[in-house]
Structure formats: C-alpha cells, structure tokens
C-alpha cells in the first residue's frame, strides 16, 4: 500500500475508534421519541379547558347566564409551563435526530470531480480518472473526520442531557398525569355534586330525573376518556425517559446485541403507543 493511502487508512480507523457511538440507534430512538412526544398536541384537554368547564358548570348549577366570565389566567399559565417543558424536550430530540442522521456527512463531490475532470482550465490538464480517485479519497477522509467529531459530540450531548431531560419528563408527567388528571377527578366530583340532587329531586318527573342521570353518565364517560388519554401519554413519556437512560448507560456498547434488542423493543413500544394515540384523534 502506498504511504499516503496507509496514512489515510490509519486516520480513518482512528477517527472511527475515537467514539464508538452507533448513530443509527440514536437517530432511530430520537425519531420515535419525536413522533411519540408530538401526541401532546392532540391531548383532549388542558388546565385552561378544565377551568372553563368547571366555571361553566358553576354557572349552570346557579342558573346563571348573566356575567359568565371565567378567570382562568392561572390555568393558562400552567398550560404555558407544561408546553414549555414539552417544546424544550422536543427541540432536544429534534437536534439529536438531525446530528445523528447517517446521511448528514455523506458529502456529495461528484459535481466537483466532474468539472475538474472535464473542464477547460487552460494549460492545466487533469485526467478524469485521477480526479475521481482523489475526490473519492477526499470524501472518505472528510467523512471520517466529521463522523469522529460528530460521534464524540453526540456522546457528550447525551451524557450532559440525561439528568436534566429526566427532570423535565418527570415534571411533564407530574403536570399531566398528576395535576391535570387531578383536576379531572375534581370535575367528576363536581358533576356528581350537581347531578346527585337533580336525580334525587322527587318533585321532578321520572323522565326528567332519568335524563339527568343519563347526562351525568355521559359527562363521566367523557372525563374518563380524557383521563385514559392522559394515562396513555404518561406511559409514552415513561418509555422515552427509560429509552434515553438506556442510550446514556450504554453509549459505548450500542453494538451489543442485548442493548440493541432492548432499544428495538423500546422503539417498538414507543411506535405502538404513538400510533394508538394518533388513532384516538
């Protein structure tokens, strides 16, 4: 092997050895996480909506249709905070997916070598074959360097991000499946508080009392459905958190079959959950 090629091979091998992060797993996991997280946009309820519904129910219970404004500013703020956690997590996964995309460093130099080989550069004459060969080596070296650099960066970013990301996902879960779900539990209590007296009001006809009972069950099943979707999304968030932890804990062994299997199962569960949630729209 000529000395130049030996050096190049060495450089390429070194670059790959610097950081052994299998970018395919990072990219695929980020992709699945983005699709799963995006279901936040289709959640059927929010803090502000729960507030407005509670407020409306109060007016109905008081037979009031005059001056029915509702102050839901605190709940709107709670929604903004929850959305901020969601968008920050989303942006992280989008960035991770972009930089781990395998095609990112496939630099296209065929146009350049074509011009160099066929162009008229006055007294300088280049053989097309030579140009193509050199361009191929240059592309390979360029890719090796940028890939080695990229792998190290990605490894570092995942390490730095794991702890804060776990915190963000924990609090996203607390807000949605904890606090918002709690507000929905309260809604159920309020509906029961309102309808119980109407259903038991013996001055009303049987038809009216039956109708109120029907309305009550309809309302409860709506709230139950909203809670189910929050619960489902909570499971998705749990999978994302676990998945990132698996990535972080196995950054140097992503080619290990057991780790690969674990990540594949995780992605499968994430994709399943995401498509289930999407089908509920």
């Amino acid at each position: 092997m000529p000395p130049l090629e030996k050096k190049l091979t060495l450089v390429i091998l070194c670059s790959f050895a610097i950081g052994c992060v299998n970018l395919k797993h990072v990219s695929e996991f980020s992709d699945s996480s983005i699709s799963a997280l995006a279901n936040y946009e289709t959640l059927p309820t929010s803090f502000a909506q729960a507030c407005r519904e509670n407020c409306r129910q109060e007016h109905i219970a008081n037979f009031n249709v005059y001056r029915t404004e509702c102050d839901c500013s605190s709940d709107e703020k709670a929604d903004s905070i929850t959305r901020l956690i969601y968008t920050t997590s989303m942006q992280y996964f989008e960035g991770l997916m972009q930089i781990s995309d395998n095609t990112l460093t496939y630099y296209e130099t065929s146009d350049l070598s074509g011009i160099l080989g066929s162009g008229n550069f006055g007294p300088v004459q280049l053989q097309e074959e030579d140009v193509k060969a050199h361009s191929k080596i240059a592309t390979l070296v360029l890719r090796a360097f940028s890939d080695g650099y990229r792998r190290n960066r990605i490894k570092q970013y995942i390490k730095e991000a794991d702890a804060p990301l776990q915190v963000l996902i924990h609090f996203l879960r607390l807000n949605l499946n904890g606090n918002l779900n709690g507000k929905l539990e309260v809604q159920k209590g309020k509906a029961q508080n309102l309808y119980f007296d109407l259903v038991n009001d013996k001055s009303l006809s049987t038809y009216e009392r039956t109708k109120f009972a029907e309305d009550y069950f309809k309302r409860i099943s709506q709230i139950d459905e909203n809670q189910r979707q929050l619960q489902r999304f909570d499971e998705v968030l749990d999978e994302i958190a676990k998945g990132h932890q698996t990535l972080y804990a196995n950054l140097d062994g992503l080619d290990d079959n057991e780790v690969k299997g674990r990540l594949a199962r995780l992605r499968y569960r994430l994709d399943q959950a995401a498509s289930f949630l999407s089908s509920q729209k």
Partner: peptide
C-alpha cells in the same frame, strides 16, 4: 391546588430547562 402545583413546577425545572436549551 392542582393548578398551584403545576405553576410551582417552573421553579423545579428552571435549571434543567436552561441546560437542555444549551445542549439543543
């Protein structure tokens, strides 16, 4: 109280938000 708890999360997540923003 549930809304209050959701509002208070901001204090718990501030530094994590900043860290993830920097990494992004």
């Amino acid at each position: 109280l549930y809304t209050k708890s959701a509002l208070l999360t901001m204090e718990d997540i501030e530094s994590s938000l900043a860290q993830i923003d920097t990494i992004s």
